[in-house]
Write a protein that binds this DNA or RNA. Structure first.
Lengths: 141, 141
DNA sequence: CTTTCTGCAAACTCTTTGCACTCGT
DNA sequence: ACGAGTGCAAAGAGTTTGCAGAAAG
């Protein structure tokens, strides 16, 4: 039950937290292997999952591509370049809504965007006190 | 080169545009098969892709799960219940920033949220006039 | 020493694709 | 009749998992 500090876990964490380029699991594997040539991809996946569960790394799942990992654990958004595939961290300023103007001024061309909120729906919330009864399939936000 | 209106394409579109529950490709397949028992999963995938390219359906890619399809093509956000997995469309009111209060009032428990913007980074934009030169790896937004 | 973790390889899920045939146009 | 689209089945990418042995505490 107790978590062990294996070299592999430390190496995986190190690679992700140092990386600024949102590496995929495969890429993390490649980098970890530079230090531990005998590490296995399965171990890298297991450790990435463990770190994500502890919120020590962040999983970034973008349209159809493989998941990539981000050492930036603070709350922030992402910009995905549809040509080169680069992922840019968009650090949020306070609670201000994202301002596309700022991005455009920095040279980005803005296309679509997706916001997903995770949580519990009214049906699933712990004690449904005050819950609005029927869960709406669509909701004005 | 010309697009054909096959029964399968029409059926796939029909299933997705009528559905309010964000079905996965597998689920769309199941439903299309009720009308065309000989349809293949490959065809469903091909037609979903075609429809998505034409913006007649929307692909919703949520953390690790299989992609699901949304007949709602207007710009909107999503709420994913982490317990039951239900996806709720969050219809946006004008350009107003998403207001979590409204959701909470409706009985939702808000957890994390992810905003991803798609587009072109400064390096990849067509004619890099006025581009800020080096692309930032992180950006204040 | 005990228990968790690892390496390996096989399995699994989701999605794409090659091919011969079908069916819209 | 032409060629885009189909069904089928196999391949592919990404990720997970069972197991025997390694190593952290």
């Amino acid at each position: 039950m107790k978590e062990r500090q294996t070299r592999q876990l430390l190496a995986v964490y190190d690679v992700v937290s140092v990386a600024r380029d949102h590496p995929s699991a495969e890429e993390v594997y490649r980098r970890v292997r530079r230090r531990f040539p005998r590490v296995s991809l399965g171990t890298v996946y297991r450790n990435l999952q463990k770190l994500a569960a502890q919120r020590r790394v962040r999983v970034v799942q973008l349209a159809d591509r493989a998941a990539c990992y981000d050492g930036m654990v603070e709350d922030h958004n992402h910009f995905l370049c549809e040509r080169c595939g680069a992922v840019t961290d968009l650090v949020r300023r306070e609670a201000a809504p994202p301002d596309c103007r700022t991005l455009e001024r920095a040279g980005y061309v803005i296309g679509a965007h997706t916001l997903t909120i995770y949580g519990l729906c009214p049906k699933c919330r712990p004690r449904s006190v005050g819950g609005a009864g029927k869960a709406a399939e669509r909701c004005r936000l």
